[in-house]
Design a protein around this nucleic acid. Structure first.
Lengths: 174, 174
DNA sequence: GATGTTTGAGAACGGTCGTTCTTGACCGAG
DNA sequence: CTCGGTCAAGAACGACCGTTCTCAAACATC
């Protein structure tokens, strides 16, 4: 019953996540989304309710498909040094944690629902560091901050530390 | 000749920097600025040319009055651990580096002039870490990333690592 | 093939955006 | 006091914002 949907919802959410990650929430207009996703305005509002609804869906997907898997992979690192190097490599290869970073800075403070999702992503990174470095070492939050800080440098387009520098640093912390 | 200016330009720039730091560039409207600064629209455009011009002035002031002095102070630390602890203490006490962080995420990628200013601020932090930790150690960029990452956590309103945790971490890196 | 329901296409809504213009208040110089 | 120039006050501009509405096209069901 009814006309079949002509767009892939998951693919649309993924495209929205990329747009939001690059231009930010306020910097991405509904027109940008309609053009970039190839989804009609009406369909977008029918499915997601609002621009914010689409943003929350994109952030949710970003967590489920990128941040949490990354955190799970980092848990398998055989030391904090390897963990750091692995995280940086993930940042070089794509938009990993980009939307998480953008959301944390731009929206987490003013939108509680975004704040909860951001907190979930950060907690996952914390947990990975803690699992590798040893619980109670008290350093997990700091090193998780380092991970996001390195992501920030990569995003800002300014040359971040080289992989060698990261490894050298990693040698210091274990 | 002419009517004298009825507002303090430096104070206006400072107020603008706070607004931009909290709400971001796109999240701060000219109406917000007019209200928050107590400066008339016409005067704002007469003096700063545009919203972007005021933003650049605010970021410039943020660097000169907060980030660069902070970097200079960090240079005097007697070790990387003290440096980290000092940086975190500065974040707790105010908006230090807040606009730098916001600009790095929201604008540095799309506005080259903002990118240059952000790069200047980050280079100052790098230099401070390098001066304390020893040049060529290759860790300066990474630890500077940690500094901004900790600032990010504080901003997002999620409980960051405690001062004790930072000190414990600092013990590992020297 | 006719019916019923949902989609896609795009015009249109009021509101707000950044910016400019017009007008009158103000003050130093002559 | 008069004049010239700068400022403050606020209305007004076109453009764009997120959102809604109308209507024809496209299927599943009967």
């Amino acid at each position: 019953m009814g006309r079949p949907r002509a767009f892939d919802e998951e693919q649309a959410v993924r495209a929205a996540a990329e747009l939001f990650a690059v231009r930010g929430y306020e910097g991405t207009s509904v027109d940008d989304l309609v053009t970039g996703l190839g989804v009609h305005r009406g369909s977008l509002y029918k499915v997601f309710g609002s621009k914010r609804g689409l943003y929350l869906a994109a952030l949710r997907r970003h967590l489920d498909e990128e941040v949490l898997p990354l955190a799970a992979a980092l848990r398998e690192a055989d030391g904090l040094g390897t963990l750091l190097a692995q995280a940086v490599a993930a940042f070089d290869g794509g938009p990993a944690a980009g939307l998480l970073l953008s959301a944390a800075v731009e929206r987490a403070g003013s939108d509680p629902e975004v704040g909860a999702l951001v907190g979930e992503g950060m907690a996952a990174l914390d947990g990975a560091v803690e699992a590798v470095g040893g619980a109670g070492s008290g350093t997990s939050g700091v090193l998780a901050a380092t991970v996001l800080g390195l992501r920030l440098r990569a995003r800002a387009g300014l040359g971040g530390p080289s992989a060698d520098a990261v490894l050298a640093f990693a040698g210091r912390v274990g």
